[in-house]
Write a protein that binds this DNA or RNA. Structure first.
Lengths: 201, 201
DNA sequence: CGGAACCCCTGACAAATGTCACGGGTGGGT
DNA sequence: ACCCACCCGTGACATTTGTCAGGGGTTCCG
């Protein structure tokens, strides 16, 4: 019997996945949470063999939860289960100690298969996505450049970004300029999109 | 026995939902498709009582599929099932003839409940979302303004938008300015976000 | 016919954005 | 001690955006 922990913020998705996985004879869903920051606790009390973590979650995202889990409950394998097959997600998932990565539009057998293979000690990753990840390369952005770009997502104007990060406007413009150059784009907008497609955030 | 049709582009979601709904004694999933443009055909051959449609789908989106279904298979009730509780989605869903609207992070009982109530002839909508929809109002944008704003999503610069729509740059700037004014924002970026949150696209 | 509401364009202007060259500070390596 | 990469800032500049005030065209309606 393989003991499973589910973490996904959508109630319906969580319940539906639970129903799906319960159809398999050798699976048992022992815990289901809707927040990333509840994952570690739930794992401690229920001792699952495999944790299926969504990435987009309130509290703590799935990648951070995976890292925490790897540290606190190293016997529990982590499989990331996400809507988006973004290159950067995969890299960060692996760095966080995940051993499996499944996208939500994979065929349903793929998930069960991934879980069983992970239990045998294998790593499970979509080969195409792995290739894309290698192609994207590691982020060439400095920490500060990431901060500024991140702030640019919510703020409309340079002045707001500067205020939020306690920087001068000129500095912010410089960082943005650097980011635009490094992403090979021509805009904040494009840079933002390019950066988070490649997982450079 | 209530006959159900499922349409969602994510394989995993579709299978999982199917498993979940099959747990209920009075439900029977008679068809499941992954594209909007297959909904009408599937409904004709399998004669479901209720169609559960996701919005984001390739081929034809769920809203268009709902409209088609209302025309071709009027005996089949449509429930929209989506991740995003956006105001504009709800309005368009209702205009397309849907009688139910459920967001994917609703509790799992809510879905079953909605299906049964729809079968009794009721309309099912989250009251809070309904209020937001009324507050957002109908789109004040002209057709051309929508075109320009839509083109602005993919194009980075005014020149590109102008080229794509065969307009002069000045005209494009004017339309964008009008959109920014109407949305009460200060940017293309903000205007874009505001417009599609309110369903003004 | 005279509005009203669109469509498309122009030109001019202020404000925001992106680029460039520069200086000074820190800390980590070799 | 030196270089390197990063941090933060400045000032000046060209380009791009967003705004405003026009003008001329269509269609539809009272």
């Amino acid at each position: 019997m393989i003991r499973l922990l589910l973490a996904d913020d959508q109630d319906l998705m969580r319940s539906a996945l639970s129903a799906l996985l319960d159809l398999e004879d050798d699976f048992e869903v022992v815990a289901a949470v809707d927040r990333g920051d509840e994952v570690a606790d739930a794992a401690r009390t229920h001792q699952p063999d495999v944790a299926l973590l969504d990435i987009e979650m309130p509290g703590l995202d799935g990648l951070a939860a995976a890292a925490l889990l790897a540290e606190r409950q190293p016997r529990c394998r982590v499989v990331i289960l996400t809507t988006f097959g973004r290159a950067g997600y995969l890299r960060r998932a692996m760095e966080a100690g995940a051993v499996g990565f499944v996208v939500k539009d994979a065929p349903p057998e793929a998930l069960a298969d991934a879980i069983r293979r992970v239990m045998r000690g294998e790593r499970v990753v979509d080969p195409e996505l792995a290739a894309a990840t290698l192609a994207a390369g590691r982020s060439p952005l400095t920490a500060r450049e990431r901060d500024v770009l991140g702030a640019a997502r919510d703020a409309a104007t340079v002045a707001e970004i500067a205020a939020k990060l306690f920087l001068s406007e000129g500095t912010v413009r410089n960082y943005l300029s650097a980011v635009i150059a490094k992403t090979g784009t021509r805009n904040r907008m494009e840079a933002l999109r390019a950066a988070d497609e490649r997982g450079w955030l």
